[in-house]
């Protein structure tokens, strides 16, 4: 792709703000899951969208600088986290993927529901983020 030599200050400034809004919303979505709309998949996609936005307005080099690690590690790590969450219940003699939850009082936050679905969702989040970024950026990198 030919780099157009236009001055896109507007885009850069906006993307700097918007991408953080998107990132924040993606984290909200991630935690909202389980009992409400949201969850790891949607959160992961949204985070990936924020990074793709960064790539679109800046370039590959800047993005790589901001995220200086290999996305494949995200996929592998995510799969492992999801797997280990499922296996934990096997160690206590329950069937694979049995859910446990507990209401806990955390200072400043009041009563919070802690479930084993959360680390599982974290795994999903990482896998989706890694996979989406890998796929999109593979094609993007090819363009130069």
């Amino acid at each position: 792709m030919k780099q157009l030599k236009t001055n896109n200050v507007m885009l850069h400034t906006l993307v700097r703000i918007v991408s953080f809004v998107v990132l924040a919303f993606s984290i909200y979505l991630f935690f909202a899951g389980h009992n409400n709309p949201g969850g790891g998949f949607i959160g992961g996609l949204m985070t990936a969208a924020a990074f793709v936005l960064l790539y679109l307005s800046f370039n590959m080099k800047t993005l790589k600088k901001a995220l200086p690690f290999n996305f494949d590690l995200l996929i592998g790590g995510g799969l492992l986290i999801a797997f280990l969450t499922g296996v934990t219940s096997m160690l206590f003699g329950f069937p694979f993927l049995t859910q446990f939850f507990e209401y806990v009082q955390i200072p400043f936050m009041g009563e919070v529901e802690l479930t084993t679905a959360l680390p599982f969702d974290l795994g999903v989040y990482l896998v989706v983020l890694g996979a989406a970024l890998t796929i999109i950026l593979t094609i993007a990198e090819d363009d130069k």
């Binding site: 494949d72 799969l79 492992l80 797997f83 694979f96």
Partner: peptide, 20 residues
């Protein structure tokens, strides 16, 4: 019986580990 799922889980775990 958790034994049934092991033939599915072990390759899955291995695959995830091998990515790393």
């Amino acid at each position: 019986n958790n034994l049934v799922i092991l033939p599915v889980l072990i390759p899955f775990f291995t695959g995830a580990l091998l990515i790393l």
